[in-house]
Design a protein around this nucleic acid. Structure first.
Length: 248
DNA sequence: AAATGCGGCAACCGCGGTTCC
DNA sequence: CGGAACCGCGGTTGCCGCATT
């Protein structure tokens, strides 16, 4: 077979566009299927990751707010490195983003411990949500301090004693139906009521009823002018493919 | 102006859990 | 019920841009 190689590395705008459209058509579940029919030559995993971390509508981008930072610290103290779980409590933030934030946060903390910053200069350590008032956050929010030396990035909070978590706590997460999907729905719903002048109707396929809502991602800003002017041929191709596959 | 270091972020990998047949 | 396929999570890596020397 002339099996093309699986692509890796950074995504191109065209790939993003294709992925968004196919996710619109088939939903954000069947990643292997989407990977195949889209012709992206990516793995399903890769597609999912790109969607979740970058293309999903409702993603917030940019710096974490102090409230979010505080929440991350609190939830990490509670749940440890359960990033996806923490992310569910921060609408618009991804587990990857929070994970990366935490790494940075820990690095800063480690440096501060090595070279304590005098209180007078605390105003500059702005990324720390406590910095405006104190460099000594409540101990119960900083498990890594309470236990003395902890490995650099920490691994798991104090209450995360068991690797066999799963089911019970996942259910717990759904107590109020605040799964990621529900959160996204809330976000997109609120955005629609606000000011969604650019509701990109990727395909008016009533079977799936997909509209590309306003995306926070830079990719969407590009789509709004450049990509949406892409080859008509390609658009038609996608349409025909969508017709083809939607008849399955 | 060039070299180097560092931080932030996107993406990949491996593993375990879940779903489907 | 068991196995295969798929999905999701957490850990890790590599790249890129900015700051510093």
């Amino acid at each position: 077979m002339a099996q093309e190689e699986i692509r890796k590395g950074p995504w191109t705008e065209q790939e993003d566009f294709k992925l968004v459209c196919f996710v619109g058509l088939f939903g954000d579940r069947r990643w292997d299927f989407i990977a195949k029919v889209s012709g992206l030559n990516r793995t399903g995993k890769s597609c999912r990751l790109r969607w979740v971390n970058y293309l999903h509508p409702g993603l917030k981008r940019g710096k974490m707010t102090p409230q979010e930072e505080k929440l991350v610290v609190e939830l990490h103290a509670k749940w440890g490195n359960r990033w996806s779980r923490i992310a569910r409590k921060l609408p618009g933030r991804t587990d990857n983003e929070i994970k990366n934030y935490w790494r940075t946060y820990m690095r800063k903390k480690a440096q501060e411990r090595k070279h304590p910053i005098p209180p007078s200069s605390s105003s500059s350590s702005s990324s720390n949500c406590y910095s405006s008032t104190s460099n000594n956050p409540p101990a119960d929010l900083l498990p890594f301090q309470a236990t003395g030396e902890v490995s650099y990035y920490d691994t798991g909070g104090p209450n995360v004693s068991t690797p066999t978590r799963k089911k019970s706590e996942e259910k717990e997460d759904h107590e109020k139906g605040d799964s990621m999907d529900d959160i996204w729905k809330d976000i997109t719903a609120s955005e629609e009521t606000n000011d969604i002048t650019q509701s990109y109707n990727c395909f008016s396929d009533e079977s799936y009823n997909f509209t590309c809502p306003q995306m926070a991602s830079p990719a969407w800003e590009l789509y709004s002018d450049s990509l949406w002017k892409m080859d008509e041929e390609e658009g038609e191709m996608l349409l025909s493919m969508s017709n083809h596959y939607s008849s399955w």
